[in-house]
Simulated scan of single mutants.
Amino acid sequence: MDFLNVTKSNFIAVATINNPPANALASGVLKELSSFLDEVENDESVRVIVLHGEGRFFSAGADIKEFVQVPSGAAYSSLATRGQELFERVETFSKPIIAAIHGAALGGGLELAMSCHMRIVTEDAKLGLPELQLGIIPGFGGTQRLPKYVGTGRALEMMLTSEPISGAEAVKLGLANHAFSQDVLLDEVKNIAAKFAQKSPQSVKAVISLLNASKQKSHAEGMKQEADEFGALFGSADAKEGITAFIEKRKPTFTGK
Protein backbone atom coordinates (compact mmCIF):
# COMPACT_ATOMS: atom_id res chain seq x y z
CA MET A 1 0.00 0.00 0.00
CA ASP A 2 1.10 3.58 -0.64
CA PHE A 3 -0.35 5.21 2.48
CA LEU A 4 -0.81 2.43 5.03
CA ASN A 5 2.06 0.40 6.49
CA VAL A 6 0.86 -2.83 8.11
CA THR A 7 2.69 -5.21 10.44
CA LYS A 8 1.19 -8.32 12.02
CA SER A 9 2.43 -10.15 15.10
CA ASN A 10 0.89 -12.13 17.97
CA PHE A 11 -2.68 -11.64 16.69
CA ILE A 12 -2.20 -7.83 16.49
CA ALA A 13 -2.13 -5.83 13.27
CA VAL A 14 -0.60 -2.35 13.49
CA ALA A 15 -1.72 -0.14 10.61
CA THR A 16 0.30 3.06 10.36
CA ILE A 17 -0.94 5.98 8.27
CA ASN A 18 1.97 7.31 6.21
CA ASN A 19 0.97 10.40 4.24
CA PRO A 20 3.49 13.10 5.20
CA PRO A 21 3.74 15.71 6.43
CA ALA A 22 0.46 15.59 8.41
CA ASN A 23 -1.08 12.20 7.50
CA ALA A 24 -4.01 13.98 5.86
CA LEU A 25 -6.92 11.66 5.12
CA ALA A 26 -6.73 11.96 1.36
CA SER A 27 -9.02 9.79 -0.76
CA GLY A 28 -6.15 7.34 -1.30
CA VAL A 29 -5.69 6.91 2.45
CA LEU A 30 -9.39 6.18 2.96
CA LYS A 31 -9.43 3.68 0.08
CA GLU A 32 -6.48 1.82 1.54
CA LEU A 33 -8.07 1.79 5.00
CA SER A 34 -11.16 0.20 3.47
CA SER A 35 -9.03 -2.38 1.65
CA PHE A 36 -7.15 -3.13 4.86
CA LEU A 37 -10.41 -3.83 6.68
CA ASP A 38 -11.41 -6.17 3.87
CA GLU A 39 -8.09 -7.97 4.29
CA VAL A 40 -8.18 -8.50 8.05
CA GLU A 41 -11.90 -9.08 8.58
CA ASN A 42 -11.65 -12.84 8.06
CA ASP A 43 -7.96 -13.20 8.85
CA GLU A 44 -7.76 -15.50 11.87
CA SER A 45 -4.20 -14.36 12.55
CA VAL A 46 -5.53 -10.89 13.41
CA ARG A 47 -7.69 -10.39 16.49
CA VAL A 48 -6.95 -6.74 17.35
CA ILE A 49 -6.05 -3.72 15.20
CA VAL A 50 -3.98 -0.72 16.25
CA LEU A 51 -4.30 2.42 14.10
CA HIS A 52 -1.33 4.75 14.34
CA GLY A 53 0.26 7.66 12.51
CA GLU A 54 3.79 7.92 11.12
CA GLY A 55 5.90 10.93 12.01
CA ARG A 56 4.64 13.87 14.05
CA PHE A 57 0.87 13.30 13.87
CA PHE A 58 -1.88 10.74 14.10
CA SER A 59 -3.73 12.71 11.43
CA ALA A 60 -4.22 16.45 11.12
CA GLY A 61 -7.45 16.02 9.16
CA ALA A 62 -8.82 15.85 5.66
CA ASP A 63 -6.78 16.78 2.59
CA ILE A 64 -7.93 20.38 2.09
CA LYS A 65 -6.30 20.52 -1.33
CA GLU A 66 -8.74 17.85 -2.53
CA PHE A 67 -11.67 20.00 -1.42
CA VAL A 68 -11.07 22.59 -4.14
CA GLN A 69 -11.43 19.87 -6.78
CA VAL A 70 -14.98 18.95 -5.72
CA PRO A 71 -17.36 20.48 -8.28
CA SER A 72 -20.61 21.03 -6.34
CA GLY A 73 -22.48 20.90 -3.05
CA ALA A 74 -24.04 17.58 -4.05
CA ALA A 75 -20.57 16.16 -4.64
CA TYR A 76 -19.49 17.37 -1.19
CA SER A 77 -22.50 15.58 0.32
CA SER A 78 -21.52 12.41 -1.52
CA LEU A 79 -17.95 12.79 -0.22
CA ALA A 80 -19.23 13.11 3.34
CA THR A 81 -21.49 10.09 2.95
CA ARG A 82 -18.62 7.90 1.75
CA GLY A 83 -16.48 8.98 4.68
CA GLN A 84 -19.32 8.37 7.12
CA GLU A 85 -19.92 4.89 5.73
CA LEU A 86 -16.26 3.96 6.13
CA PHE A 87 -16.07 5.29 9.68
CA GLU A 88 -19.33 3.52 10.53
CA ARG A 89 -17.69 0.32 9.33
CA VAL A 90 -14.76 1.02 11.65
CA GLU A 91 -17.11 1.57 14.59
CA THR A 92 -19.05 -1.64 13.95
CA PHE A 93 -16.04 -3.75 12.91
CA SER A 94 -16.06 -7.19 14.52
CA LYS A 95 -12.49 -6.87 15.84
CA PRO A 96 -11.36 -4.17 18.28
CA ILE A 97 -9.70 -1.16 16.66
CA ILE A 98 -7.57 1.01 18.96
CA ALA A 99 -6.46 4.47 17.89
CA ALA A 100 -2.97 5.29 19.22
CA ILE A 101 -2.86 9.09 19.05
CA HIS A 102 0.22 11.28 19.25
CA GLY A 103 0.85 14.81 18.01
CA ALA A 104 -2.57 15.75 16.72
CA ALA A 105 -5.90 14.21 15.75
CA LEU A 106 -7.80 17.08 14.17
CA GLY A 107 -10.86 17.30 11.97
CA GLY A 108 -11.20 14.09 10.00
CA GLY A 109 -8.34 12.64 12.04
CA LEU A 110 -10.37 12.95 15.23
CA GLU A 111 -13.50 11.74 13.44
CA LEU A 112 -11.60 8.59 12.44
CA ALA A 113 -10.26 8.16 15.98
CA MET A 114 -13.76 8.58 17.46
CA SER A 115 -15.04 5.78 15.24
CA CYS A 116 -12.42 3.41 16.69
CA HIS A 117 -13.43 1.33 19.69
CA MET A 118 -10.82 2.95 21.95
CA ARG A 119 -8.52 5.96 21.90
CA ILE A 120 -5.20 5.98 23.74
CA VAL A 121 -3.29 9.24 23.58
CA THR A 122 -0.11 11.01 24.52
CA GLU A 123 -0.60 13.46 27.34
CA ASP A 124 0.23 16.44 25.10
CA ALA A 125 -1.66 15.32 21.99
CA LYS A 126 -4.11 17.82 20.47
CA LEU A 127 -7.64 16.61 19.68
CA GLY A 128 -10.19 18.87 18.04
CA LEU A 129 -12.68 19.64 15.28
CA PRO A 130 -11.53 22.98 13.82
CA GLU A 131 -13.61 22.87 10.62
CA LEU A 132 -15.52 26.07 11.44
CA GLN A 133 -12.30 27.98 10.91
CA LEU A 134 -12.75 27.11 7.22
CA GLY A 135 -16.41 28.10 7.17
CA ILE A 136 -17.52 24.47 7.04
CA ILE A 137 -18.51 21.80 9.57
CA PRO A 138 -17.33 18.29 10.43
CA GLY A 139 -18.65 15.90 7.80
CA PHE A 140 -17.45 12.43 8.74
CA GLY A 141 -19.61 11.96 11.84
CA GLY A 142 -17.94 14.44 14.19
CA THR A 143 -21.11 16.30 15.17
CA GLN A 144 -22.77 13.00 16.08
CA ARG A 145 -19.97 11.18 17.90
CA LEU A 146 -18.24 13.94 19.88
CA PRO A 147 -21.24 14.85 22.11
CA LYS A 148 -21.70 11.19 22.99
CA TYR A 149 -18.21 11.20 24.51
CA VAL A 150 -17.89 14.68 26.04
CA GLY A 151 -21.49 15.96 26.32
CA THR A 152 -23.36 18.44 24.15
CA GLY A 153 -22.09 21.60 25.82
CA ARG A 154 -18.41 20.66 25.66
CA ALA A 155 -18.76 19.41 22.09
CA LEU A 156 -20.39 22.69 21.08
CA GLU A 157 -17.56 24.66 22.69
CA MET A 158 -14.88 22.58 20.99
CA MET A 159 -16.44 23.02 17.56
CA LEU A 160 -17.46 26.68 17.82
CA THR A 161 -14.11 27.82 19.24
CA SER A 162 -12.15 25.43 16.98
CA GLU A 163 -9.78 25.00 19.92
CA PRO A 164 -8.33 21.53 20.55
CA ILE A 165 -8.04 19.83 23.92
CA SER A 166 -5.00 17.98 25.23
CA GLY A 167 -4.70 14.23 25.51
CA ALA A 168 -4.76 14.51 29.30
CA GLU A 169 -8.02 16.47 29.15
CA ALA A 170 -9.48 14.00 26.66
CA VAL A 171 -9.04 11.25 29.27
CA LYS A 172 -10.80 13.35 31.91
CA LEU A 173 -13.73 13.98 29.55
CA GLY A 174 -14.05 10.34 28.54
CA LEU A 175 -12.94 10.90 24.94
CA ALA A 176 -9.80 8.79 25.50
CA ASN A 177 -9.15 5.80 27.73
CA HIS A 178 -5.56 6.41 28.79
CA ALA A 179 -2.75 8.94 28.32
CA PHE A 180 0.94 8.05 28.22
CA SER A 181 4.17 9.77 27.30
CA GLN A 182 5.06 9.52 23.62
CA ASP A 183 8.08 7.28 24.14
CA VAL A 184 5.93 4.47 25.56
CA LEU A 185 2.61 5.08 23.76
CA LEU A 186 2.81 2.33 21.17
CA ASP A 187 4.20 -0.22 23.63
CA GLU A 188 1.40 0.50 26.10
CA VAL A 189 -1.23 0.24 23.36
CA LYS A 190 0.21 -3.11 22.27
CA ASN A 191 0.09 -4.33 25.88
CA ILE A 192 -3.62 -3.55 26.02
CA ALA A 193 -4.17 -5.07 22.57
CA ALA A 194 -2.40 -8.24 23.73
CA LYS A 195 -4.89 -8.61 26.58
CA PHE A 196 -7.75 -8.31 24.10
CA ALA A 197 -6.12 -10.84 21.79
CA GLN A 198 -6.07 -13.46 24.55
CA LYS A 199 -9.86 -13.51 24.71
CA SER A 200 -12.16 -15.64 22.58
CA PRO A 201 -12.68 -13.86 19.23
CA GLN A 202 -16.34 -14.89 19.31
CA SER A 203 -16.88 -13.31 22.72
CA VAL A 204 -15.08 -10.13 21.65
CA LYS A 205 -17.21 -9.89 18.51
CA ALA A 206 -20.37 -10.34 20.61
CA VAL A 207 -19.38 -7.58 23.06
CA ILE A 208 -18.70 -5.13 20.21
CA SER A 209 -22.04 -5.98 18.62
CA LEU A 210 -23.88 -5.52 21.92
CA LEU A 211 -22.22 -2.18 22.68
CA ASN A 212 -23.28 -0.93 19.26
CA ALA A 213 -26.77 -2.25 19.94
CA SER A 214 -26.86 -0.18 23.14
CA LYS A 215 -26.47 2.95 20.99
CA GLN A 216 -29.02 2.02 18.36
CA LYS A 217 -31.68 -0.14 19.99
CA SER A 218 -34.10 0.16 22.87
CA HIS A 219 -33.12 -1.21 26.27
CA ALA A 220 -35.46 -4.18 25.83
CA GLU A 221 -34.06 -4.99 22.39
CA GLY A 222 -30.51 -4.80 23.67
CA MET A 223 -31.29 -7.08 26.61
CA LYS A 224 -32.90 -9.62 24.30
CA GLN A 225 -29.86 -9.59 22.02
CA GLU A 226 -27.57 -10.04 25.02
CA ALA A 227 -29.52 -13.09 26.19
CA ASP A 228 -29.43 -14.58 22.70
CA GLU A 229 -25.66 -14.02 22.38
CA PHE A 230 -25.11 -15.41 25.88
CA GLY A 231 -26.91 -18.63 24.96
CA ALA A 232 -25.28 -18.99 21.56
CA LEU A 233 -21.75 -18.70 22.93
CA PHE A 234 -22.25 -21.49 25.45
CA GLY A 235 -22.28 -23.98 22.60
CA SER A 236 -18.86 -22.92 21.35
CA ALA A 237 -15.59 -24.79 21.78
CA ASP A 238 -14.07 -21.62 23.26
CA ALA A 239 -16.70 -21.53 26.02
CA LYS A 240 -15.97 -25.16 26.88
CA GLU A 241 -12.24 -24.40 26.90
CA GLY A 242 -12.69 -21.32 29.08
CA ILE A 243 -14.85 -23.09 31.66
CA THR A 244 -12.58 -26.16 31.72
CA ALA A 245 -9.49 -23.98 32.13
CA PHE A 246 -11.10 -22.14 35.03
CA ILE A 247 -11.89 -25.42 36.79
CA GLU A 248 -8.39 -26.74 36.11
CA LYS A 249 -6.85 -23.42 37.27
CA ARG A 250 -4.93 -22.73 34.04
CA LYS A 251 -5.00 -20.10 31.33
CA PRO A 252 -7.41 -20.88 28.48
CA THR A 253 -6.28 -21.14 24.89
CA PHE A 254 -8.99 -19.81 22.61
CA THR A 255 -9.16 -20.78 18.94
CA GLY A 256 -12.17 -18.78 17.80
CA LYS A 257 -14.28 -21.93 17.37
Rank of each mutant, 00 (worst) to 15 (best):
residue 2 D to C: 06
residue 6 V to T: 09
residue 7 T to D: 12
residue 8 K to E: 14
residue 11 F to V: 07
residue 14 V to M: 13
residue 14 V to D: 04
residue 15 A to G: 12
residue 15 A to C: 14
residue 16 T to K: 12
residue 16 T to F: 12
residue 17 I to T: 11
residue 19 N to R: 15
residue 21 P to V: 14
residue 24 A to K: 13
residue 24 A to C: 12
residue 25 L to G: 09
residue 31 K to Q: 13
residue 32 E to N: 01
residue 32 E to M: 10
residue 32 E to A: 11
residue 38 D to M: 00
residue 39 E to P: 02
residue 40 V to I: 15
residue 46 V to D: 03
residue 51 L to F: 09
residue 53 G to D: 09
residue 55 G to Y: 10
residue 58 F to D: 02
residue 61 G to F: 00
residue 61 G to N: 08
residue 65 K to N: 11
residue 81 T to H: 14
residue 83 G to A: 02
residue 83 G to I: 06
residue 86 L to S: 00
residue 95 K to P: 11
residue 97 I to G: 07
residue 98 I to T: 05
residue 100 A to L: 11
residue 106 L to C: 11
residue 106 L to N: 02
residue 112 L to H: 02
residue 115 S to D: 03
residue 116 C to P: 05
residue 117 H to Y: 07
residue 119 R to E: 00
residue 119 R to V: 06
residue 125 A to N: 08
residue 127 L to D: 06
residue 128 G to S: 00
residue 129 L to Q: 00
residue 129 L to R: 05
residue 129 L to V: 00
residue 132 L to E: 01
residue 136 I to W: 04
residue 142 G to R: 03
residue 146 L to P: 12
residue 149 Y to N: 05
residue 150 V to R: 05
residue 150 V to D: 11
residue 151 G to S: 10
residue 152 T to K: 15
residue 154 R to Q: 11
residue 155 A to Q: 02
residue 155 A to W: 04
residue 156 L to K: 14
residue 156 L to E: 11
residue 156 L to Y: 10
residue 157 E to H: 06
residue 158 M to Q: 10
residue 159 M to K: 03
residue 159 M to T: 06
residue 160 L to A: 07
residue 161 T to Q: 09
residue 164 P to V: 12
residue 166 S to H: 09
residue 168 A to V: 07
residue 172 K to W: 10
residue 173 L to V: 01
residue 174 G to W: 11
residue 174 G to P: 08
residue 177 N to P: 04
residue 179 A to V: 01
residue 179 A to K: 01
residue 180 F to Q: 05
residue 180 F to V: 07
residue 181 S to E: 05
residue 182 Q to I: 10
residue 184 V to T: 11
residue 186 L to H: 11
residue 189 V to I: 02
residue 189 V to Q: 06
residue 190 K to L: 14
residue 191 N to P: 08
residue 193 A to S: 02
residue 193 A to G: 05
residue 194 A to W: 09
residue 194 A to V: 08
residue 196 F to W: 12
residue 201 P to L: 09
residue 203 S to N: 14
residue 204 V to C: 13
residue 206 A to N: 07
residue 209 S to P: 11
residue 210 L to A: 08
residue 211 L to Q: 12
residue 213 A to M: 06
residue 215 K to T: 13
residue 217 K to H: 08
residue 218 S to C: 08
residue 227 A to I: 04
residue 227 A to W: 07
residue 232 A to H: 01
residue 232 A to I: 08
residue 236 S to D: 09
residue 236 S to H: 02
residue 239 A to Y: 05
residue 244 T to E: 04
residue 248 E to Y: 10
residue 248 E to A: 14
residue 251 K to L: 15
residue 252 P to F: 03
residue 254 F to Y: 15
residue 255 T to V: 15
residue 255 T to S: 15
residue 256 G to D: 06
